[in-house]
Amino acid sequence: MKLKIVVLAKQVPDTRNVGPDAMTPEGTVNRSALPAIFNPEDLNALELALRLKDQNPGTTVTVLTMGPGRAGEIIREALYRGADNGYLLTDRAFAGADTLATSYALATAIRHIGVPDLIVGGRQAIDGDTAQVGPQVAQKLGYPQITYTEEVLACKDGKIRVLRHIDGGVETVESPLPCVLTVNGSAAPCRPRNAKLVMKYKHAKCAMEMTEETPYKELIAQRPYLQLGQLTAADVEADLEQCGLSGSPTKVKQVENIVFQAKESKHITASDNDIEGLIKELLANHTIG
């Protein structure tokens, strides 16, 4: 069966490889020192969508990302791997959104671009690790959800059957379509970029990315597939009260750099004498044994 799939993807700072310059002396995050990457689990979600497309000819995979202009990179990365099109949801009004305001904006955009059969996203993004946006988008659209997805086992007759991880095991779950899946990092990794698709889409841009200096302007104007979708809050008819900071029930009271209290350590060497002394001490005070 032909499916309309929306993949939710986020551009995130690479918090897994934090160098010494990642924090400013004031204790705030120095975003410019962290490379912006495709959120790893969103790549697993993209692969899951592309596999469904491989198995179901006529399926379309649309990528939706929310962020500033540079997040257009996420759409291109997805196109290079086989997505059909993409939208950048971008507006000052979305700034400062917590997960609830984010899911409101995404759900509104999904309604605007057309109700899909399936929405997939990574389980969580590595900058927040909340795992909340997927289920909240599902709730906002009134769809069921399957989180912690490992693999789609079957998708036919308006139903999807999924293998998911649960605490201490696995579960096979079936849901009617449309529904929302969030995908684990342990699911199938995303296929690499396809060279032909890179050639095709490398000049693709959304309107926000276009500047005076942008090369190939004429080429982009002639070829609609090089014009990436861009949506503002007004385009998707979002209620501004529910967007960004004002739509966010959670407020950040305080942010602290992690400083561990250094303890008075007892330093010893690897000599037989020292190790035996330590073991005796630990045995004597019943720490071990």
């Binding site: 918090t15 204790g27 995050v29 992690i258």
Partner: peptide
């Protein structure tokens, strides 16, 4: 938050 590099209240 931020991969464990900060603590937020």
């Amino acid at each position: 938050a931020f991969g464990g590099n900060i603590v937020a209240t």
